[in-house]
Simulated assay, not measured.
Amino acid sequence: MAAEPKKIDIKDMSPYQISAFKQQLDNEIGLLESSIVDLHNAKTKFMGCTETCENFKTIDNGSEILVPLTSSLYVPGNVVNNNTFLIDIGTGYYVEKDLKSSVDYFKRKVKFLDEQIDKFVKMIQEKDQIRQALTNFLQQKQAQIQQQQPQPSKA
């Protein structure tokens, strides 16, 4: 059974601790934003794969095409079957699918990535609200400390 996390009231924290906690939130938000960019890039690739598969409907079997080996190296090839695709499903595994199944696979991937992006956006919003509250509280606490310090007398 997992122990419940210990809750700390920010009123009991020093300005240094609040600043450190705010910095941690800044780092987490930055990481989430970076992850969202990566998810958008993956989504764009899957959307491109969907479009490529759908475009193969217009290419006749036996047509000559250029096959990409890398992003900058293409070799000539011939379309043997414009309805069958070899799909990279990760970690070096490939699956043969027909056009409809291929498009469905890529659309499911896009949907999953959209869901993950939405989750990350919500997490950023929550963390940003906490960060704003910490910033406001820190400013109040610093103003309080300044008021409590003795003012130099004017002589």
Score class of each variant (00 low, 15 high):
50 T>C: 03
41 N>C: 07
45 K>Q: 09
48 G>A: 09
51 E>M: 02
32 L>M: 05
43 K>E: 15
52 T>I: 01
55 N>I: 02
33 E>C: 00
51 E>T: 10
37 V>F: 13
43 K>N: 15
29 I>K: 10
37 V>N: 07
41 N>Y: 06
47 M>D: 12
33 E>H: 03
35 S>C: 01
34 S>M: 04
44 T>H: 14
40 H>Q: 15
33 E>M: 05
42 A>G: 13
48 G>K: 13
40 H>W: 14
37 V>Q: 14
49 C>K: 09
39 L>K: 02
33 E>Q: 11
42 A>D: 13
49 C>T: 00
41 N>G: 08
47 M>N: 09
51 E>L: 00
41 N>H: 09
39 L>C: 01
49 C>F: 15
37 V>T: 14
33 E>L: 05
37 V>H: 12
46 F>T: 00
45 K>F: 07
30 G>R: 00
38 D>C: 01
29 I>M: 10
50 T>R: 09
36 I>P: 08
39 L>D: 00
47 M>P: 02
54 E>I: 03
30 G>P: 01
40 H>N: 14
48 G>L: 07
32 L>Q: 08
53 C>L: 10
39 L>S: 04
35 S>K: 11
27 N>R: 11
50 T>W: 04
30 G>V: 02
41 N>T: 10
34 S>I: 00
48 G>E: 10
48 G>F: 08
31 L>I: 10
40 H>C: 11
43 K>T: 14
51 E>A: 02
49 C>A: 09
55 N>Q: 12
39 L>H: 01
34 S>E: 06
49 C>E: 06
55 N>V: 06
34 S>A: 07
52 T>Y: 09
52 T>V: 04
48 G>I: 11
49 C>G: 13
47 M>L: 12
35 S>G: 06
31 L>F: 15
42 A>S: 13
53 C>Q: 07
27 N>F: 10
27 N>P: 04
29 I>A: 10
39 L>I: 03
30 G>C: 03
30 G>A: 08
40 H>L: 14
47 M>T: 13
38 D>R: 01
51 E>N: 01
34 S>Q: 11
52 T>Q: 03
52 T>R: 07
54 E>G: 06
52 T>S: 07
45 K>E: 06
46 F>G: 00
50 T>V: 02
55 N>H: 12
46 F>P: 00
35 S>A: 11
38 D>K: 02
37 V>S: 14
36 I>H: 08
46 F>N: 00
28 E>P: 00
49 C>W: 11
39 L>A: 05
41 N>I: 05
46 F>A: 05
46 F>K: 03
50 T>L: 03
43 K>D: 13
43 K>W: 12
